[in-house]
Write a protein that binds this DNA or RNA. Sequence first.
RNA 1: GCGGAUGUGGUGAAAUGGUAGACACGCCAGACUUAGGAUCUGGUGCCGCAAGGUGUAGGAGUUCAAGUCUCCUCAUCCGCACCA
Length: 816
Amino acid sequence: MNYVPKDIEAKWQKFWAENKSFEPSEDFSKTKKYILSMFPFPSGRLHMGHVRNYTLSDTFARYYRQQGFNVLHPIGFDSFGMPAENAAIKNGSHPKTWTYDNIDYMKKEFASLGFSFSKERELATSDELYTKFEQGFIIDMYEKGLLYRKKGMLNWCPHDLTVLANEQVVDGCCWRCDTPIVKKDMNQYYFKITQYGDELLDDLKKLEGGWPKQVLTMQENWIGKSNGLAFDLFFDEESKAKLNSTFENFDVFTTRPDTIYGVSYTALAPEHPIVSYMIENTLLSDDVVSQVKEMKNSSSIDRQKEKSGVALGLNVLHPLTGKSVPVWIANFVLMDYGSGAVMAVPAHDDRDFDFAKKYDLPIHAVIKPLEGELDLTKAYTDAGIMFNSSSFDGLNSKEAQSKVIDYFESEKIGQKTTNYKLKDWGVSRQRYWGAPIPFVHCDDCGLVMEKKENLPIALPHDIEITGEGNPLEKHPTWKHCKCPECGKDAIRETDTMDTFVESSWYFLRFCASPANWENEAFSAEQIKYWMGVDHYIGGIEHAILHLLYARFFTKVFRDLGYIAFDEPFEKLLTQGMVLKDGAKMSKSKGNTVDPDAIIEKYGADTARLFILFAAPPTQELEWNDSAVEGAFRFLKRFSDRSSYVNKSNKFPVIDHASLSKEEKHARKKVYEALKRAQDVYNERYTFNTMIAGVMEAMNALNEQTNRDVWSEGYWILTSVMEPIVPHLCWELSHTLFGGKNLAPQQVLDEVFEVDALVLGVSVNGKNRATIEVGVNVSEEEIISIAKASVEKWIEGKEIVKSIVIPGKLVNLVIKG
RNA sequence: GCGGAUGUGGUGAAAUGGUAGACACGCCAGACUUAGGAUCUGGUGCCGCAAGGUGUAGGAGUUCAAGUCUCCUCAUCCGCACCA
């Protein structure tokens, strides 16, 4: 058969489209698999990373379909977001037009790659229907107290002119445009993700085994739970007077209560309310004020370069000794962690030590190593024996931590406290191309929810996008509305939601039956059947952002009563990047390979085969043009050799005993490939080795000429390869076997029965010879044959031990 | 600094404690040509004419047997990072 991928691929793509071959069944009595790949942003064209992602999920989906499962393999587009607006600014297109044109193009690309997505469940998150349901959920969350509005210091990107979540600030810069972010005081909406901090952390345990360890660790670190002691430090009388008695004390948090007797100063963040008060009431010298301002204004990167600070001229009393402790401002104290104030123990904390050295503050050591002397030239941060610590002297510092906390609690001067690095998720954005936040500002009623029957609050089409300010804010009429409560004139919220809100629940939406698509987001019954996602496949770059938010939404939806499980994604496969010349493919580096060009030249099957063959999915994949050629040549050969196959709709019956050695070997290789495939889908996901197995089987088939063996080989191999190279395999399978072989295949044990075994013979673990022995040969005989084969190495030596590993090798242990 | 991972031919990689380098790319040699995107045959870790030696970042250990398990060192990549 002459292999012309273009013809074959067009033929089967048409067939699949016309026959709706990939729609999941609504029969919930069947066993299901939900295979999901992270949906794309419609940037315009697919890149190789997409091709890898969707080839992986498609391979899973096709495999499980072949195995008789009811498979949901949906696709959508994460279609709100800044690039649409940036394109509008750049070339005057409307964000909606730009977005949906891109979606149309990318859908064609998906089809040309033969991806078996459900078409009836396709969605774009910018669809008004999606917005409608999302706004409904937002209202539910507000009613539950999980969404709130407050004024706060926010990450502001001066380039994109919008607020960013903490998760979207990378190295102090905007995750999209790399502009250094600045802090801005604004009214914003927040999701109370911190309320779920403990559960998000604890439930990571449920994901062990199913999720990559790396992702679990990253989430754990991001949540950043730490236990310790919180207590108040009280000002002395003089300091109180200085502060006009406005403040009596401030709160500090420590994870090292065992070092409490080593406190020699305390430090406040430059943004601390006490500092602000002192500046406002001119209680600080101009010099100090300018130093504080400098600390506040320097970017987070600059702030990390060198520690700096200034004394406030205030003192607090040590909670246990009553001694006077000076209060400083220090640039390394963060306002948004703990209480924005710390107790400093320079003897046992690196930062406190550096700061104390710089400003010549006292250093009181209170913990010494279990062995050896205390080195006073640096901070001793390990556990040890406490001293100079009153009644705690002599205790192991690690064990004493809870004792110190108990003491503070019994004296009612402090309490055990848990702190998190995780912050509430700021979700409002001052942009046009997002889902409007469904609230109204009323002079009389305050912040009012929109009524659910008025949803969706859709975006206006007639806007002007200039790149400055929020287009919704500037729209002449859109924001003017009536208060849903009192009916008076009111102003609609012009902020839109972070696009990560849409991707936090899209996997639930896919469970909705097309029959009720318009009426409900999803039903409990549908969710119960389809969730959780059996295989979720996507890039590691979403390890924190999307995967944490999606987990959070799942827990919230559970508490709202919509669903009844805790975690959305059972198995997560994070694919490696696609590289060219050792670097990530990117337009700026000019090292991209256009998927369309590869399909045009070799066909989709070759692209899919290469991508799965070149490396295991979790590893980086180096693009290699000649290896792509190699993949193409294999498919060509696979197609050509099908001429040795007898066309039949029945599985060939073969008398194994009558076969030649080569024929038996070929059968064995075919069934090894089948076994390996089953292993790969269930456990290992190493499609590269599975393909290698098929190639080995092909090489073995080629060593013999028995048409029945060829026929059986193709019956099995086209079935095994169908998930990877679907077009060619459907063509072969339907031409040769009437499509009957695209079904579960049985491993025939008879082909693994052999009359002779090839064993390696090693002497002291070193391989020396190979012997062939009959299956029924006794261990003693094997050893004697083995000895004869390695005469040269054992001559004159004493054999102290002989080990026979059945079917594998013989190891002779010699002495002398 | 903390955490996670990785380290095997010229290259991508394989090896579930049991014959290291499967499978493929590349390269070398040959065959066949109706000169094709060819195809087919053989070879290809390193040193050596060979016998043989040697080899999985380096070092130690466990084991009859280690790329694989344990410990240490080094290198690279990724994530977090003044988190009190």
